[in-house]
Amino acid sequence: MTLLITIFLPMQVIAQEEEPTNETSSNSHQSDSAQAWLAKMSDAVKSLNYTISFILLKPGADSQPYLWRHGVNEAGLEMEQLNQLNGPGREVVRIGNKVSYFEPNVPPYSLQSSIINGPFPSEFFQRPEKLMLGYEFIMVGRSRIAGRAAQQIRIISKDKSRFGLNVWLDQETGLLLKMNLIGQEAQLLEQIQVTGLQVTKEPDPFFAKIEPGMLPEVVNFNPSAAINSPWTIKYLPKGMTIVKRDLRRLSGSGEVVEYIMLSDGLVDISVYIQDRSNSKPQDNLVGTVQSDTLLTIEHGELNITIIGKIPAATANAIAKSIQRII
């Protein structure tokens, strides 16, 4: 079934925009192009039995060590575990497309999803083809990471509107060894450094202990009705699309806002639109919270807030492009 997806998705991408030479095929691992390496990565992430220890570094925050395990059982069912090793312990377990969260102070719950949206861009690992619309892939060369031979690939946005990414993939398996999120002045914004990688023939014994029937219930969201918003975003960075849009009440402040999520397959951006006539006056702000950029401005009759891993100038351009259409 994983094969089906890998073959199916590139076709979608090609349908959306003509890609002159770069058709990825999941079998072209021998070739040395960046696309082939990323295809190898996504294939390995989905099909191998592995245990990876990595450390996540963000500016202004303590480093966070994680344990990441993945296995495929005889029935072809994918199992995945992500465990935060410092502190009281947060654990996410995925069996097939049921993702269960176990966290302190919160009753465990499950979501219907085929990826863990963890500290790393899972969507990028699973389907890097999605990035071909907005990013360019450049082979950089080989180096040694976490004691293993690694292949470095640089990923930069075609219209320079987003941060760049440097990834190092294991020469042998194609799994991730290191990932740097790079700002526009080449400063390091976020880093994942793998410290241990084991690929095994059988899934880790941990997965045998999980009883799928004992996992918490799936929380069901009622699909929100398509909203008929009077606002439109005129400028989207290349490759970005609206993946979600609804009216929602913020649990923190109780205010009602229009919510739009933009995604390019690597970064997700939240856009909050609020009519100024019924919200409190606010100052224009721009800043960073760890590796997220936060921008909140008054624009026409709106208060607009944008959060995500994008340069502030891009966030500003998106905010300023919001217009009334009704």
Binding site: N97, S113, N117, E123, K244, R248, S253, E255
Partner: peptide, 29 residues
Amino acid sequence: RRINAYLTDHKQQLRFKTMQLNNDESTIL
């Protein structure tokens, strides 16, 4: 306080996002 509310909501949205995305492709799964 409002910015905190936005940041919280952003984190929550990222976590809950996956299911929305996978609706289209997950039928076989």
